[in-house]
Design a protein around this nucleic acid. Structure first.
Lengths: 197, 197
DNA sequence: GTCTATAATTCGATAGAC
DNA sequence: GTCTATCGAATTATAGAC
């Protein structure tokens, strides 16, 4: 009947476009990553990008689908939660073009920032929900975890601050573990009950 | 002799341009914050921006000069260093258009990222140098401090993650104090001496 | 000092030949 | 499926009138 696999050629072209888009968005941000530049890197014609993805915004949406893939905390004792998440981040995020692309674009394009909010709400909140029953406190834990996780990605992979780039993965995990442990299980300090300042 | 104050009118115009530039860069990033939009917000003609600042890049350089103004740690006991820096950040950074503008632009423009690296190297490193004599360890402390400081600014003011935006300044300071204390004075954990994994 | 007009590019997107 | 040609819009920056 000849119902064979559809258009292997175009599938390869589409994959090449996606890979090139991730690299250009990650390196240049949204405005400077032109369709022409993405097509050139993929070795195809710019019109192919429009044909397969319709618009630049839809291309980004297809290229920047990102899963944090956070670990299961219920499998290990509470005392090692911070270290588990820290090692996971350092290993999973190291030079991840999809994350960097989404982060860079999210600082200037509202729809990408919205996607980032959705990703963190949908993936960090469930992680915390595994171990924190109080909803208000769970929200705070998830928020503070996000500040440290994204602060690491920003300074190490986007801004490339020299002291942050210089850290080895093991050193990073060593510094992060107690901090993430604090955000996951620590109690918030009382707001300094000084009467004057 | 009539050597009076020079051109008060143009000084006011220049200041209005700078304020408008900070707002537009902070809200839209570099590419979308056009000279036309900045001039419109300042209530003047776009050509005035070019006349006074020469180019868009020079305008950003003039608008995004930022001082972290970190506190003096030698004035208080070591046990309160974390809390001192945390409260300083929360108070000094809240809705600071200059910081947000520089952060947003730095993710896409190399010269702005370079300025960010210079600012943190020139202002965070001296803070740590007050209290840490080992240069290698001081660099690590400064790097980790930067990840948390900029991670807060990114998630609260740029990406506006709901759980981070919802935190009150006092709650923020409560969570951050022990973390900053750890980065300033804590010892790095040994790298989990498991032989396997 | 201020504004109009426009030069010189560059981009996303489209139409249509092959 | 692929590519050429180009449209229409937007931008920075400049030249020059008033």
């Amino acid at each position: 009947m000849d119902l064979e696999v559809p258009a292997r050629r175009s599938d390869r072209t589409k994959a090449a476009i996606l890979a090139a888009a991730r690299e250009r968005f990650a390196a240049d941000g949204y405005a400077k990553a032109t369709i022409r530049a993405i097509a050139a890197q993929a070795g195809i014609d710019p019109s192919m990008v429009m044909r397969y993805y319709g618009s630049k915004e839809k291309l980004l949406a297809a290229a920047a689908s990102f899963e944090l893939e956070l670990p299961d905390l219920t499998a290990v004792p509470p005392s090692s939660w911070g270290r588990l998440v820290a090692h996971h981040l350092v290993e999973r995020w190291e030079r991840n073009d999809t994350l960097i692309a989404l982060l860079r674009v999210a600082t200037t394009q509202d729809f990408a920032a919205e996607r980032m909010r959705t990703i963190f709400a949908g993936q960090v909140a469930p992680l915390v929900a595994q171990i924190e029953s109080d909803p208000a406190l769970a929200s705070q834990r998830a928020g503070m975890l996000s500040t440290q996780m994204l602060g690491l990605a920003l300074t190490r992979y986007v801004l490339e601050l020299p002291p942050v780039v210089a850290l080895t993965p093991d050193e990073l995990a060593g510094w992060l573990s107690p901090v993430l442990q604090h955000y996951l299980t620590g109690k918030v300090s009382p707001p300094a009950a000084d009467s004057k300042e």
